[in-house]
C-alpha cells in the first residue's frame, strides 16, 4: 500500500516539473547542443551546404588578423571594462538603497520600494531612449544643464561618443535600470537579520557604523555573494545599452555586438556560435573563481 502511494506521489511531482522540463528542453538545452554542433561547421546562412570544419572556427578566433579574432577580443575588452566599471556600483548602490529603505518608517517603505523597482520593469528600448536624450551631445538634458551654469558651454561633453564619459553614461543608465532588483534582494536579506542582535549591540553602545560592519554585513554575506555573481553575469551579458545608446566605436563594441555582427551581417552562424560558446565558457569559469574566492573564509 505504501509503495503504491509512494509511486503515485513520485508521478505527481514529475508531472509538476514536466512543463518546465519541456520548455527547458525546447528553449535551452536543444538550442545549446545545436549551437555547439553548428560551431564546428562553416555555416553560412545562404549556403545550401554547411561543411564540417572541426575546430576551424575556434582556431580562427585565436588567429591574429582574422575578423573573428578582432571582433572577439575587441568585444572581450569592452565587455570586461563594463564589468569592472559597473559591478562594484551595482552591489554597493543596491545595498545602500536597501539600507536607506529599511531606515524609513514602515508605511513609506513599500511606496519607495515600488518607486525604485519600477525602472527594472521598463524595456531596454525605453531605457535607452530616455538616457540617450539625457546624455545627448547636442541638445541633451545634461549638457544643456551644464551649459546653463556655464560649464562646457561651447564645447559640449561627448557623452556616448568618447571614453571615459561613455562608460560613465552607460554605468549610470544601467544602475537606473537594474538597481531595483539588487535592492529588493538586499531588502529581503536585511529583514532576515535577527532584530535582537541589533538590540544587544545598541545596549553595548555600538554605533550605527559598527552595527553595519559587525552585524549586518556578516549576516547577509551569502546574499552579497549571490548579488555579486548575478551582477557580474548580467554585466557580462551587456548588450542593449551600448548597442542603442553609445557611438564610441570599438571602445564600447561589446562581445554580444560582435557575435551578432558575425551571425547576421556576415551571415557566419558557425563562427558566431563558436564565439558564443567561448563567451559562455569564460563567464562560467569567472563565476566559479568568484564563488571560490568569496566563499573561502567559511
Amino acid at each position: 500500500m505504501s509503495t503504491m502511494s509512494n509511486w503515485k506521489s513520485k508521478l505527481t511531482s514529475s508531472l509538476f516539473i514536466l512543463p518546465y522540463f519541456l520548455a527547458f528542453l525546447a528553449f535551452t538545452l536543444i538550442p545549446i547542443v545545436y549551437g555547439f554542433i553548428i560551431s564546428f561547421k562553416q555555416y553560412n546562412l545562404l549556403d545550401p551546404v554547411h561543411p564540417f570544419v572541426g575546430l576551424g572556427n575556434y582556431k580562427s578566433i585565436f588567429t591574429e588578423g582574422t575578423q573573428e579574432n578582432d571582433l572577439f577580443f575587441i568585444g572581450m575588452k569592452a565587455t570586461l571594462k563594463f564589468v569592472v566599471f559597473s559591478v562594484p556600483f551595482l552591489v554597493i548602490v543596491g545595498l545602500g538603497f536597501a539600507l536607506l529603505l529599511n531606515a524609513l518608517p514602515a508605511k513609506l517603505r513599500s511606496f519607495f520600494r515600488s518607486i525604485y523597482f519600477i525602472p527594472y520593469a521598463v524595456s531596454a528600448t525605453v531605457m535607452a531612449v530616455i538616457w540617450k536624450r539625457m546624455f545627448d551631445v547636442t541638445g541633451g538634458f545634461i549638457n544643456l544643464l551644464l551649459a546653463k551654469v556655464g560649464i562646457h558651454e561651447f564645447d559640449p561633453i561627448p557623452w556616448l561618443l568618447d571614453s571615459p564619459f561613455v562608460w560613465f553614461a552607460l554605468v549610470v543608465a544601467t544602475l537606473w535600470w537594474t538597481i531595483g532588483f539588487n535592492m529588493i534582494i538586499f531588502v529581503n536579506a536585511l529583514n532576515g537579520v535577527p532584530e535582537d542582535l541589533y538590540e544587544a549591540a545598541k545596549i553595548d553602545g555600538a554605533s550605527g557604523w559598527n552595527r553595519l560592519i559587525s552585524i549586518t554585513l556578516p549576516s547577509i554575506r551569502p546574499v552579497i555573494v549571490f548579488v555579486l555573481i548575478t551582477s557580474t553575469i548580467a554585466s557580462y551579458n551587456i548588450f542593449a545599452q551600448p548597442n542603442l545608446m553609445s557611438n564610441a566605436g570599438d571602445e564600447t563594441k561589446v562581445l554580444l555586438m560582435g557575435i551578432l555582427q558575425t551571425a547576421y551581417t556576415a551571415r557566419e552562424i558557425g563562427s558566431a556560435s563558436a564565439m558564443a560558446i567561448l563567451m559562455g565558457l569564460t563567464i562560467m569559469i569567472a563565476s566559479i573563481i568568484q564563488f571560490m574566492i568569496t566563499n573561502r573564509k567559511e
Binding site: 549551437g35 557580462y236 559562455g280 566559479i288
Partner: peptide, 9 residues
C-alpha cells in the same frame, strides 16, 4: 551560468 549566458544571446 553558462546556460544563462547562452540564453541571453
Amino acid at each position: 551560468v553558462k546556460l544563462k549566458s547562452l540564453q541571453m544571446i
